[in-house]
Computed example of a mutant assay.
Amino acid sequence: MWAYWVLFLLLFSSTSAFATPALVVEHLEYDFGEVIQGAEVSHTFRFHNAGDQILNISQLRSSCGCTAAMLTTRKLAPGAIGELQLTFASQGFRGEVEKMVTFETDDPRHAAVTFHLRGKVKAELLLQPERINWGVVTKGAGLHAEIDIVNRSTQTITLQPPEITAAGITAEMSHLTIVSGEQARLAITARFPEGKKRLAGYVIINTNFPSLPQIRVPVSARLAHQ
């Protein structure tokens, strides 16, 4: 009788030792193709617990504040299904993008799982070029650059006069209204403030265009060693 009792305890202990949660994910990546700048992209990732213990999810984090993540549950019973909904706000982005969201689990084989959203954002208000970097310049050199702001949308876009975030930078627009298919020119000039060897700031232009309500142009240069 004692031997049977010992055998039962051994079997029970063995079964408990191997009881673990097991995360199974349908897919880890989603390509949303191409969207117009300003659009929101949403996708739901599904997963389930194929183990025989409760699956605990923690430490949900996104690679960017532009991507919201929502879990249906953080505790998944054996056999249960969970969902992770991601929403990417494309405002201010252009070109190829990839956003990631990660959560941690107590599945020993999947301690951390990362989901990917990727695709292309098509801008309708373009800057050519997008930034001004004069690099290393000599003292007294004239710093001047021009940027074309191109309207590829179907509406007329109104710009506000440029604002500057750093001393030594000035900016002027050729005009503040850009009809569909046309462009305006932003002229930027700069000089190093007295005693400064580095020039860095932004030219900021607010717009009435919902997809890009604010244009930010980085401007930088460094003074060569004398």
Rank of each mutant, 00 (worst) to 15 (best):
A3C: 04
A3I: 03
Y4W: 03
V6E: 09
F8G: 07
S13V: 04
A22D: 11
V24I: 09
V25W: 08
Y30N: 15
D31T: 11
I36T: 15
E40N: 07
R46I: 10
F47C: 09
F47N: 07
I54C: 12
I57E: 11
L60P: 15
S63Q: 04
C66H: 04
L71E: 09
T72Q: 05
T73E: 14
E83T: 07
Q85A: 10
S90H: 05
G92I: 02
F93S: 09
E96P: 14
V101E: 08
T102C: 12
T105D: 12
H110I: 07
A112K: 12
F115D: 10
R118N: 14
G119M: 07
K122V: 14
L126C: 08
I132C: 00
G135S: 01
T138W: 10
T138M: 06
E146Y: 04
V150G: 14
Q160P: 05
P161H: 00
P162F: 02
T170D: 05
H175T: 08
T177I: 08
I178V: 02
S180H: 09
S180Q: 08
I188H: 00
I188K: 07
F192L: 01
P193D: 00
E194V: 05
G195A: 01
I205T: 03
N208E: 01
P213Q: 00
P218V: 01
V219Y: 01
V219K: 02
L223Q: 03
